[in-house]
């Protein structure tokens, strides 16, 4: 088990002929992921990555030819929301969008449309998914992770790698690592992933890394209090961030008292989450929680 992706996932890459898309498609293949095709409008019929991966003009064609059930998107920001909708219209069950910088209203429209389909979106502006030893659908460096029983949910890229690195140093592997993205509108929120990890027999504990801005961590904590039995270890980045300033991620901005790291941590702790103050203590805390 694991969540969302495994060795049987059939992956297509939208934007596979671009520099980012082709580089990461190859990396995903090398990791052992099942990259069955790519989509670039106007470049259908080509084969890329040492002449092995077929390129299609449309997602519908790609889906028909390959039975792909996962799409990984590297399409530039002005066209990325359209690419998400195209994947959903083709019936792709899971769409992972790496693209950073998609206009918010475009994402709000795509998000609302996806609610009427059976497609789940991860991201955008995220590092994607990694199920160690099975599949990577995104840009996480595969070698830092190892197979195990800790589920990881995070808004950030490199901070996720840091947490995974700490887990491995403690001898703890991961079931699946999910980078959900740091934008104001994202496809899959923390609470939904908590439930997926709760239902996953392989996962024993969940690391949840949030940051300032929005209320997703609070909603997840309140959900967890009622619904999640597995231990959750939480960290919120941005304790020193000044209000009203966007800290890199479009969504990382404190625009109300509830959006500060302090407020989130307090509510998370009151909901039974093991809150870590120091980003250097994430791995150690998971170990402690699992041993106790």
């Amino acid at each position: 088990m694991a969540i969302l992706v495994d060795k049987d996932s059939k992956i297509i890459v939208q934007g596979i002929t671009g520099s980012e898309g082709s580089f990461h498609a190859e990396q995903c293949l090398e990791y052992g992921g099942n990259v069955v095709g790519g989509v670039t409008p106007g470049k259908g019929g080509q084969k890329v990555i040492n002449d092995t991966v077929p390129v299609f003009n449309t997602c519908i064609e790609a889906r028909e030819a390959t039975s792909a059930n996962v799409s990984l998107i590297f399409v530039p920001p002005p066209f990325a929301a359209d690419a998400i909708i195209e994947a959903a219209d083709a019936g792709i069950e899971l769409v992972v969008c790496i693209t950073e910088g998609i206009p918010v209203i475009d994402m709000a429209r795509a998000y609302t449309y996806l609610k009427s389909t059976n497609t789940r979106l991860i991201g955008p502006n995220c590092p994607g998914l990694l199920t160690p030893d099975q599949a990577k659908v995104g840009i996480m460096p595969g070698f830092i992770a190892k197979k195990g029983s800790v589920g990881v949910i995070s808004k950030s890229g490199t901070l996720t790698y840091e947490a995974v690195h700490q887990l491995c140093n403690e001898g703890l592997g991961q079931s699946t690592c999910v980078g959900i993205g740091g934008d104001p509108v994202i496809g899959t929120k923390m609470a939904e992933l908590l439930q997926l990890f709760e239902d996953d027999s392989e996962t024993e504990a969940i690391v949840m890394i949030g940051e300032i801005g929005g209320s997703m961590e609070i909603e997840a904590a309140e959900y967890a209090k009622e619904n999640i039995k597995k231990p959750i270890i939480g960290f919120i980045a941005g304790q020193t961030a000044p209000p009203g300033r966007r800290m890199g991620h479009a969504g990382a901005i404190v625009s109300g008292a509830d959006e500060s790291a302090e407020a989130k941590k307090k509510i998370m702790a009151s909901c039974g989450i093991h809150v870590v103050d120091s980003p250097a203590e994430i791995g150690k805390t998971v170990k402690k929680v699992l041993v106790s």
């Binding site: 950030s156 890229g157 740091g182 980045a237 020193t240 890199g248 990382a252 120091s278 980003p279």
Partner: peptide, 14 residues
């Protein structure tokens, strides 16, 4: 990375 940058600021403060 923005998340790691914030976390780095946090640990400096801690």
């Amino acid at each position: 990375g923005a998340g790691l940058a914030m976390a780095t600021m946090d640990i400096i403060k801690l």
